[in-house]
């Protein structure tokens, strides 16, 4: 029991559960299963980008990828326009989206490594280029996704969204990658002390490069799936993923200072974020109240989560 209490991801899950129960109580249980199903769908998109962001943040202070929204927009735009609604082009679109993501990651890392620009500034400024490229590519016109792809992103298996199942599997892979591979251990070691990691034989720069590329590739994947899900890519589609990707990571119990990460918390935090907004909408709270409460509750969960960690 005490071992469980010490788990940093516990608080995000408790928060999600509490918020869900509060909503269900308010509505006398009506529709609470549907709310959960919606939370799984939309939480899945959060988790895809947060998984990449988690590895980046774990690299240590100053490491963060702010180009996620622009990367999502660019990948979604190019993939949708290339596929142009043709089912036979779905694999090509996916490959393109992933390749664009990887390309974005390479550029980001090149700016950080070769030009020695701090990651925050490098990824923020590169995102202007990616966003402009997306505007130039299709001038904001919304191209419909292929029918089959759209069906896949909205399909359900015994009431559970297929995309959520896929992303849970992805999160399991992420968990194994973090805790059971040399790469994952290297990321954590670098986050705790880059110099010590280097002296211990961790190939610091190779791991950092791989991490930034992976993060951007996941953002490309998310852009691809989100545009398929919501009927086409829009220029502002990634906007809310900038802060949410970081918030989900931190609420999930990953240390914002790096060197300490966990994957289960990502899902807990993603569900929590969605259910929180749903709860406040259901209560009929005004926009001002809602934003203030969202801020306060997020702070509360982070404090609780870090309090739990201090206990270890």
């Amino acid at each position: 029991m005490t071992a469980l209490l010490r788990k940093p991801w516990l608080w995000a899950w408790l928060g999600a559960l509490a918020v869900w129960l509060a909503t269900a109580t308010f509505t006398h249980g009506r529709g609470s299963a549907e709310v959960l199903s919606a939370a799984l769908t939309f939480g899945a998109f959060f988790v895809i980008v947060a998984l990449g962001q988690m590895f980046v943040i774990t690299l240590g202070p100053g490491n963060v990828d702010l180009s996620i929204p622009a990367c999502m927009t660019l990948a979604g735009t190019v993939a949708m326009k290339t596929m142009d609604g043709a089912a036979s082009m779905i694999p090509l679109g996916l490959v393109l989206a992933l390749a664009i993501g990887a390309g974005v990651g390479v550029i980001n890392y090149a700016l950080i490594r070769l030009l020695r620009i701090p990651p925050i500034i490098a990824t923020l400024s590169s995102s202007f280029i990616f966003q402009s490229a997306a505007i130039w590519w299709n001038r904001g016109l919304r191209v419909k996704p292929p029918e089959a792809l759209a069906d896949f992103t909205t399909a359900k298996l015994a009431g559970v969204p297929v995309i959520a199942i896929a992303v849970v599997l992805m999160a399991v892979a992420g968990h194994v990658l973090l805790t059971r591979t040399i790469y994952g251990r290297g990321v954590v070691a670098i986050g705790q002390n880059m110099r010590a990691a280097h002296l211990a034989g961790v190939r610091v720069e190779r791991i950092r490069a791989a991490t930034y590329i992976m993060c951007a590739t996941l953002a490309g994947l998310c852009g691809y799936l989100l545009s398929a899900f919501s009927g086409g890519a829009a220029l502002n589609m990634g906007e809310e993923y900038l802060l949410s990707s970081i918030a989900v990571v931190v609420i999930g119990g990953t240390s914002v200072a790096g060197g300490f990460a966990n994957v289960p918390g990502l899902w807990g935090a993603a569900l929590f974020m969605f259910l929180l907004v749903t709860m406040l909408n259901t209560f009929g709270a005004g926009a001002g109240v809602r934003l203030v409460l969202t801020g306060l509750i997020i702070i509360g969960v982070i404090v609780a989560a870090s309090g739990g960690k201090r206990g270890t």
Partner: peptide, 14 residues
């Protein structure tokens, strides 16, 4: 579009 879809999907069941 996507934000509206998400918000509506969340509140509809209630």
């Amino acid at each position: 579009q996507d934000v509206a879809q998400k918000a509506v999907a969340g509140i509809l069941p209630s």
